[in-house]
Amino acid sequence: MADEVALQFSSIGFRHQLPNPKWYNPFNKRQGAGISQVDLTLLGGQIIGLVGTNGAGKTTLLRMISGILPFKDGHASKDGERLEIEALRSMVGFMPEQIRWSGQQTIRETMTEFALLQGCSIQSTEEILSIVGLRNRSDSSLESLSQGMRQRLSLAVALLGTPKVLVLDEPFNGMDPVAIDAFKRLLRTLANNGIAVVISSHHLSELDHLVDTIALLHRGQLLGHGTIESLQAKLGFEEMTEVVLNREITDPIIDSLNIIEHSSTGQEHRYIFDSSHPELLHVLIAQNYEISTWRILPPTLIELLCAATGLDRDAIGMDVGQSSMIPLRMLGGEEE
């Protein structure tokens, strides 16, 4: 089941309509930010991490994948056949960011309601509640749920109707580390069962050891999609190495190395080099340095975005929230 194409999106686009009242037309709208010309293939069993800064268009893209927002351009297809919006919705389970479930309704009643909306059997709700660990709370009212339980309920609703694709918008928000870990393991299990998972986050670290591929989104455009290694290679990243020692390096070998960052705090000296440098390791061992850390550093989201867009760190930061969509440098240095 893995690697089978679950869904394919071709050149999809959407622009938000923002109120722009005029004296002659108080309901006048103008086009705001959105998504432009995104091509994305979702494979069964694969977890895709959708990353980007605030306002990059992650939620908009996820809503399009879920069939909530209409495609102004492009289309979704499965096995080469164009999908209507209802067919798309029936294939995708969507978990929005932080649902504030409230009311006197119980979890079981809520699941029954969404099972009816989904068109799946009501009996399946019990099984799904077991999967997300809420079966023994199924008679609890929504008011009494903690944030973590609300997230689990949102996931349970998304799993109704055995979706081919699971779309999760910032699912770790408000969850404690233990719950995050359990959630990640659950997602991996679901992926192993052939479900394609798309998960958004503005923190790459949250997606560590979870996602198979990364999709980089900025200003509504998909700048690149692939494994972290392939993105690094395409963007020309070299592996960076962090080394923490008990004293400063005085050996002449230091002159031949490219130090990206160096900081000292008391007895701790931290270096970041642009590659792994095994010859340095030999020297440090030979000279009895105490090496408390030696690790390969993954690129940060900012670094990946800077490399993909050609913008510097300040420009990326100030860019958040811009409603205009201008062509950006795409992967491989091409201009769109």
Binding site: R63, I68, A87, R89, S90, P96, R100, L117, V157
Partner: peptide, 19 residues
């Protein structure tokens, strides 16, 4: 719309006129 449940409702396959 305020508590976010609308997003889940709108993502359901039941046609909007039925909802």
């Amino acid at each position: 719309r305020m508590n976010g449940v609308l997003e889940i409702r709108l993502s359901q396959p039941m046609q909007r006129w039925r909802q």
